[in-house]
Simulated assay, not measured.
Amino acid sequence: MSSKQNSCFNVATQLTRLGRDPGEQHGFVNAPLYKGSTVIYQTMDDLEHRRSRFTYGTAGTPTIANLENAWTQLAGAAGTVLSPSGLGAVTLSLFSTTKSGDHILMPDSVYRPTRNFCNGMLARYGVTTTYYDPMIGSGIEALVQPNTSTIFLEAPGSQTLEVQDVPAIVAVARQHGIKTIIDNTWATPIFFRAHDHGVDVSVEAGTKYLGGHSDLLLGLVSANAESWPALRATYDAMAMLPGADDCVLALRGMRTLHMRLKEAERRGLDMASWLQARPEVSRVLHPAFESCPGHEFWKRDFTGSSGLFSIVLKPGYTREGLARMLDHMAVFGMGFSWGGYESLIIPFDCAQYRTATSWKPEGLALRLQIGLEDIDDLKHDLDQGFARLK
């Protein structure tokens, strides 16, 4: 079904139809899995002129194209490329908008591996990075340099969940001819349509909610018409593509993405409200809560919230107590990533690597991913944990 035909449906319906065509699949509901490297040409002339929809495995397969096309329509983009991980998607996007001698602006709340890539790989290639307060809004104009090529955003921010004023920053970027990239993993295009807000390139870790089952690593990068040629050229030069099996898992995850996100939103809000009332908790960092920096921007620009948020404990608790709490959780696991069916909890402290802002919370901080377990079991597990904390 064409993009125009699909666009007349609401998003939940679109997700059941994107990236497949039973009419071309002998009536089967799901598209077949294509795995391979070599593409056979019928004539020498076809071979010499690369006259084929798919020229070689690194240029894509029907399976990869199904996911690319589906995500392009969902994100409202001109095109999408894939990578084997969310970080791979970040690096692809930055390589597509920078060259040696450029300067980029990066929020201080950005995903730490993205920061490491800027401070390491990009710096080696002569790209300099200035970190900025994620709440700077239109004030970011004061940080623009003559060689600034890219402003990166992440809304909400990693771990501390600050929601940026995306339209204000995009307006400054457009005024100066600067490209904008956003890491939109937390909201996905379901809750925030980045390209509709003027962002040039949108990055998604499909590892999280698109996969939904903690069993694949995947990145997606979508771009508007202006930025699409450079992004595709960068992708073609690097051939950093995922395996076809992972694309099938992602397409399967897409069918239930809306339903799972809405349930993650419901559960996340329930758990965050319960935690806000706990005597051990000082504040909740959840974009839907007024205590979260940038809540007003979330309320204005986003259509929902997912199941990842953080809390800051009241002063006085120790790391030893925290270890007693976390080491013996019965339901919550300790592990990185999120967006899967299992609930996760990790401590964090970004004071050591933030450079544009100071992270000085009043107490210890925890990030929680709310999964699909019974809510009462999750609350009981935390209640027991808080008892050990004391």
Rank of each mutant, 00 (worst) to 15 (best):
Leu122Glu: 12
Ala123Thr: 13
Ala123Arg: 14
Gly126His: 13
Gly126Met: 12
Val127Lys: 08
Thr129Glu: 12
Tyr131Cys: 15
Tyr131Val: 15
Tyr131Leu: 15
Asp133Thr: 02
Pro134Tyr: 05
Met135Lys: 08
Gly137His: 05
Gly139Asp: 12
Gly139Phe: 10
Ile140Gln: 10
Ile140Thr: 11
Glu141Gly: 10
Ala142Phe: 06
Leu143Arg: 12
Gln145Pro: 06
Asn147Trp: 09
Asn147His: 12
Ser149Asn: 13
Thr150Tyr: 13
Ile151Pro: 15
Leu153Trp: 04
Ala155Gln: 10
Pro156Lys: 01
Pro156Glu: 06
Gly157Asp: 08
Gln159Ala: 02
Gln159Arg: 04
Thr160His: 07
Val163Ala: 06
Val163His: 02
Val166Ala: 01
Ile169Asp: 09
Val170Ser: 04
Val170Lys: 00
Ala171Gln: 12
Ala171Asp: 13
Val172Asn: 07
Ala173Thr: 08
His176Cys: 04
His176Asp: 05
His176Thr: 06
Gly177Tyr: 11
Ile181Met: 04
Asn184His: 05
Thr185Ile: 01
Thr185His: 02
Thr188Asn: 05
Thr188Ser: 06
Ile190Asn: 12
Phe192Asp: 05
Phe192Ile: 01
Arg193Asp: 14
His197Leu: 02
Val199Gly: 03
Asp200Met: 13
Val201Ala: 00
Ser202Gly: 00
Ser202Asn: 00
Val203His: 01
Ala205Trp: 01
Gly206Tyr: 05
Lys208Pro: 00
Leu210Lys: 07
Leu210Gln: 04
Leu210Gly: 07
Gly211Lys: 01
Gly211Tyr: 00
Gly212Asp: 02
His213Gln: 05
His213Glu: 04
His213Arg: 09
Asp215Glu: 08
Leu217Lys: 01
Leu218Asp: 00
Gly219Leu: 02
Leu220Lys: 06
Val221Tyr: 05
Ala225Ser: 12
Ala225Ile: 10
Ser227Asn: 14
Ala230Lys: 11
Ala237Pro: 10
Met238Arg: 15
Met238Gln: 15
Ala239Ser: 14
